[in-house]
């Protein structure tokens, strides 16, 4: 399996994992370890004054996993830029998963505000990985303003519905010159494998792992599926045909000739 390069950084794993919704930090660290990932997403929130030292993320070994702060909760470009700068001040990390989701019900990204924030953040020296609807034109615009990847959604965040936007993601993959990371809605390892077989460069999974009965085993299953899909893509699938093509020889049958 070829390694993935984003903004000059090399990743041997093509599975990125979100750290939300885990029942405990011990379970989270075991799951990210089992996933084989090298990049995990995190969010920024106000310190809870009633539980001021709940520092779940201290459990993450930053020498093994690159943190990718997200701008979740941002409703417009200004809020996303503010969160990105806070994340940089908190961590020194200049990478950001840019997400602008004004609608709390479907959490669909606002393309116009995302593009606006992306321009500003790229200018400010950030490596920007924008979360977008599966819109090939927007993907191209974001690529043109200097984004390091594009991250089209498979289906709404946390919905586990799989590759509902498949046809549009295929166009994005065909046209993109930056890595395409399929993010959001991948609910089963087969969904991750499907995205990778199509030629996605990576997938990002959170809920499907964190909310599984056994997140550690599910992380392992997503690792295998991501690798299987990618290996199949790099190998090239055998051709499809409408009619049958016998796998066994069509001679030497035990019947009258």
């Amino acid at each position: 399996m070829k390694s993935l390069i984003i903004a000059g950084r090399e990743f041997s794993s093509r599975l990125f994992v979100g750290t939300g919704k885990f029942a405990s930090s011990a379970l989270m660290t075991q799951a990210i370890d089992a996933s084989g990932t090298q990049m995990v997403t995190v969010a920024l929130r106000r310190v809870d004054m009633d539980d001021a030292n709940d520092t779940m993320l201290e459990a993450i070994d930053r020498t093994k996993y690159q943190l990718l702060p997200n701008t979740s909760g941002a409703r417009d470009a200004a809020e996303a830029v503010r969160l990105s700068r806070l994340a940089r001040a908190a961590s020194g990390i200049e990478w950001v998963k840019l997400e602008v989701t004004p609608d709390p019900y479907y959490l669909l990204p606002d393309g116009e505000e995302t593009l606006k924030a992306a321009k500003e953040l790229v200018q400010d020296g950030f490596v920007v990985l924008p979360y977008i609807n599966a819109d090939p034109i927007l993907a191209k615009k974001l690529q043109d303003v200097g984004c390091a990847t594009v991250m089209p959604l498979a289906s709404p965040i946390g919905s586990n519905q799989g590759m509902k936007t498949k046809a549009s993601i295929e166009i994005i993959i065909e046209q993109a010159t930056v890595p395409v990371v399929v993010d959001a809605g991948l609910g089963a390892p087969s969904h991750a494998a499907e995205a990778m077989e199509m030629g996605a460069d990576a997938v990002l999974v959170n809920t499907a792992i964190a909310a599984a009965n056994d997140p550690v085993q599910m992380a392992r299953a997503f690792k295998m599926a991501t690798e299987a899909g990618r290996t199949a893509y790099e190998t090239g699938l055998a051709p499809k045909s409408a009619a049958a093509n016998a796998s066994s020889p069509l001679t030497g049958f035990l019947r009258e000739i």
Partner: peptide
């Protein structure tokens, strides 16, 4: 004053 920290997120 806003006091902010990283938490788990996707």
């Amino acid at each position: 004053i806003e006091l902010i920290r990283f938490v788990g997120g996707g």
